[in-house]
Design a protein around this nucleic acid. Structure first.
Length: 250
DNA sequence: GTTGAGCGTT
């Protein structure tokens, strides 16, 4: 990521669109006004649902300014979008933790983002086959398989923290808030609390005897593969217009 | 290699 062009890099805070809206939709909407550097739609950390707003960042700050100042009203899917300047820089996970005091409740799950350049998919393989499966490993499969340290609670390894502190973070001092555990898809075992109480007959000691790493909360698979990465038909369209940004993909 | 857990909605 071109990082921030400068500290002034402005992102537009856009809201008012439907939950079904995808980054690419916004991208194609705003692209005509300037090169889009990034479109990011935060999603709830747990539910994975879009939080209702997005950040559209122009590569050139001026474009953002123009869009904003022009007061032009953008409508997407019949809804008028509200546009503002983004207030702060994106918070990093760490920052979020810091706010845990208050934001503890609204941690947000991986967000939907849209980066120009995402041109992978050479037609080397028959992409028409199973899109889903393919999508999964479309991005450096190997990489992904190994570095499970990065991607948070996508589907399998639920605890982002677990990964992070493994060695990466300099100061592994994890906050005491154990509520940190991520997307726990309502594990059943968790839901039968009082049961054991009056369960005089079934309680066999030997069972409880084997302490099996109850520590790892397994979020039974993410809600759905609402990765956002999924099928993005229009993307290509948008992308084509901006094939110039090749910068990353990650 | 610079992150993707950035302002929501009382």
């Amino acid at each position: 990521m071109p990082r921030d062009r400068n500290d002034n890099s402005v992102s537009l805070h856009v809201s008012g669109f439907k939950d079904s809206t995808r980054p690419s939709d916004l991208a194609s909407l705003f692209e005509p006004h300037g090169r889009i550097a990034d479109v990011y739609i935060p999603k709830d950390y747990y539910t994975g649902r879009p939080r209702g707003f997005a950040y559209v960042q122009y590569y050139d700050e001026e474009d953002a300014r123009r869009v904003y100042e022009s007061g032009e009203s953008f409508t997407l899917d019949g809804r008028k979008l509200e546009i503002q300047y983004a207030q702060g820089r994106r918070k990093t996970p760490n920052q979020m933790r810091g706010q845990s005091g208050r934001g503890d409740r609204r941690r947000s799950r991986s967000a939907d983002r849209y980066r120009p350049s995402a041109r992978r998919y050479s037609r080397s393989r028959s992409r028409s086959r199973s899109p889903v499966r393919r999508r999964r490993d479309s991005r450096s499969p190997v990489r992904r398989a190994r570095s499970r340290s990065r991607t948070p609670p996508r589907r399998r390894s639920p605890s982002p923290r677990r990964a992070g502190n493994s060695r990466r973070s300099p100061s592994p001092r994890r906050l005491p808030s154990r509520s940190r555990s991520p997307p726990r898809r309502r594990s059943i075992s968790r839901e039968r609390p009082s049961r054991s109480r009056s369960q005089s007959h079934g309680a066999s000691p030997r069972r409880a005897a084997s302490p099996r790493r109850a520590a790892s909360p397994r979020p039974a698979a993410s809600p759905r593969r609402t990765d956002g990465w999924g099928e993005e038909p229009k993307v290509s369209e948008w992308e084509e217009g901006n094939g110039a940004y090749g910068s990353y993909g990650w």
